[in-house]
């Protein structure tokens, strides 16, 4: 990758950094809190993301497309959504970590609906979070939310599948194909 390409890719990030500095100078009262949350989030990110991306690389190298397609592909029946739910629910990390993982799943032939279910499960039905929610907000609250979220996730996945044209889905899959490839 040439330096010019690198510079172009990081242009927005650099602009954001300048905007951030400007914000700190313009609102000194909010600066300590903004700095603290930046450090806090960056720490979480540097802690959680490396193992996720390592797993993603291992998945890419070791799991053959045929096998993943069999279990999560368009013809996987009920197994696909079930695996998507389990994968998303045992995951750790913020929702944005789920996006690159879903790109690998798409690359390996998981169906669009199953990938969307995986995203939904990662966002709300994570097991450690559920236990914590039960403790903090009460069993009734947490269980009720889980009970409504599971059909909600499936409903949203199917609605998206219906809304997004096949051509757009094909484009998303084509983009996912390049994830982790050195020639990108």
């Amino acid at each position: 990758m040439s330096p010019a390409v690198v510079a172009k890719r990081y242009r927005v990030a650099v602009l954001a950094a300048f905007a951030f500095l400007a914000f700190l100078l313009a609102f000194p009262a909010l600066a300590p809190s903004a700095e603290r949350s930046f450090v806090e989030q960056a720490k979480t990110m540097l802690l959680v993301l490396p193992p996720i991306f390592l797993l993603l690389g291992l998945l890419d190298v070791w799991v053959p497309k045929k096998a993943l397609m069999k279990y999560m592909g368009p013809k996987s029946g009920l197994t696909g959504p079930l695996i998507a739910f389990v994968l998303g629910s045992v995951a750790a990390g913020p929702l944005y970590a789920a996006f690159p993982v879903s790109a690998i799943l798409m690359k390996k032939g998981a169906s669009f609906t199953n990938v969307l279910i995986f995203i939904g499960a990662w966002s709300t039905t994570k097991i450690p979070m559920f236990l914590f929610e039960m403790h903090a907000l009460g069993t009734r609250f947490a269980v009720a939310r889980l009970v409504i979220d599971i059909p909600g996730i499936i409903l949203i996945a199917f609605a998206l599948k219906a809304i997004i044209p096949a051509r757009e889905v094909a484009r998303i899959y084509a983009a996912a194909e390049s994830t982790g490839n050195p020639e990108e």
Binding site: Y10, A16, F20, S37, L54, G57, D60, V61, G180
Partner: peptide, 24 residues
């Protein structure tokens, strides 16, 4: 596998930094 993981991480890094700054 390690290289692929690192590459995927680097490819999302610019957006990640932007998001972290915005979140802060």
């Amino acid at each position: 596998a390690i290289l692929k993981g690192a590459k995927a991480f680097e490819s999302i890094l610019p957006q990640l930094v932007t998001v972290l700054l915005a979140v802060a």
